[in-house]
Design a binder for these strands. Structure first.
Lengths: 214, 214
DNA sequence: GTTGTTGTTTACAACTCTGTAAACTATAAT
DNA sequence: ATTATAGTTTACAGAGTTGTAAACAACAAC
């Protein structure tokens, strides 16, 4: 049992990030204690500082990794929906929402963002909006980009709300926290979003479009 | 300049809660330090523990006060919308959203909730849903209560998301954080919500309604 | 005026957490 | 083998936090 005691830098960083992700999921962003992460990763806490410089460095690195992964999952799901046949659009869009509302993983991304971590949110979100607009155009060619932007914003804000509020609001509204209820809500939301694309009920009015300059 | 040095318990508690509210607004829920609150209220920090028992007691008391005030504002706004003439519904509903998305105050309520404060969220939310459903019925008598519930949930989650994400998501989507943009978004959302009541595009399907038992 | 109650403060204890310094150790290169 | 590099640990310092204990001060009751 020749235990390996010295990892490569990449291995060490990955192991620390794994432990940090799990810890953040359990205790929330503010409760992230370097010592707890070290314990979970099976090492002494100064080793974390050696690899990430500081607690803040660790949080930023984790935010980056988590954000990239989430963006990849979501853009993949939207791309699939884009190629789905007409009658499967609802299911495909529901799947997008399922992906964007991941029960456990997404929390970490949102929480880290809340705790002020720097990450490349902007390019990620913009890719998501562009893909979403293509999806809407595949349903109705005349949809308004400003509306797409606002719909993405609404859904994103709701995602953030769901993550941080946990079961509180759903409980208060009489929704159980069982997965079946959450899934039905997402399907209902997907149907609304598709209807709003199909009929394009509303435009953004006058000059209220977001600025498209860089 | 006869400075009053001893307050009544009510005065002291109110002064402490005011200072705590301001502090939470500035530093967020996790950053609430009893000593900072004491400094802002112009007293020594053990006095806060004397009046509220502990830091957690202070947070719970603040959550209660803030929640009550927010609920009162929102239910008042919905009641006004209920009595508004048909052609003013959009403006009235926009005002409801303005009230529910208060630039500064609402943060405290949401944040406190996030930090695990106990509060009477459930009865407050249920009053809001019932009034919202009356509002929807005043537009279209056949609207579905389950849809109302889900719309309230969607809007509430988005509110929470807006509060906690701050300018981050809006920035990433190209919306400036100026009040005019935020106001336009709320008006757009109000129009969507009214259309969804007017046409009742979607019902909740089968047995997916939230349980209505107490 | 004296006494009791309670708001208030000062001083302190105990704890937790991040980050530093120096020593130790495994691995690779020469 | 020796040396250099870098991952890892132990021990500790320093700051900041909540909460406690005891004394002080204002106000009310009698």
């Amino acid at each position: 049992m020749a235990k390996k005691t010295h990892n490569s830098p990449e291995e060490a960083r990955a192991a620390i990030l794994d432990a940090a992700e799990e810890t953040v999921f359990q205790v929330g962003p503010a409760g992230l204690r370097i010592s707890a992460v070290a314990k979970k990763a099976g090492m002494a806490h100064p080793n974390i500082i050696h690899h990430f410089g500081s607690r803040e460095g660790l949080i930023n690195a984790l935010a980056e990794r988590v954000g990239e992964r989430a963006t990849e999952r979501i853009t993949n799901a939207i791309s699939e929906a884009l190629n789905a046949p007409e009658q499967d659009k609802v299911a495909a869009l529901t799947h997008v929402l399922d992906t964007a509302y991941p029960g456990d993983e997404g929390r970490v991304a949102v929480w880290l963002h809340l705790s002020g971590a720097e990450s490349s949110l902007k390019p990620n979100m913009q890719r998501i909006v562009e893909l979403s607009h293509e999806l809407r155009k595949s349903i109705n060619d005349e949809v308004d980009f400003g509306v797409t932007n606002r719909l993405v914003m609404l859904v994103t804000l709701a995602l953030v709300g769901e993550v941080v509020s946990g079961a509180g609001i759903k409980d208060a509204l009489g929704f159980g926290s069982e997965e079946s209820n959450r899934a039905h809500f997402r399907q209902w939301l997907a149907e609304i979003l598709l209807k709003l694309s199909d009929e394009e009920l509303l435009t953004t009015g006058g000059n209220n479009n977001p600025t498209s300059d860089n």
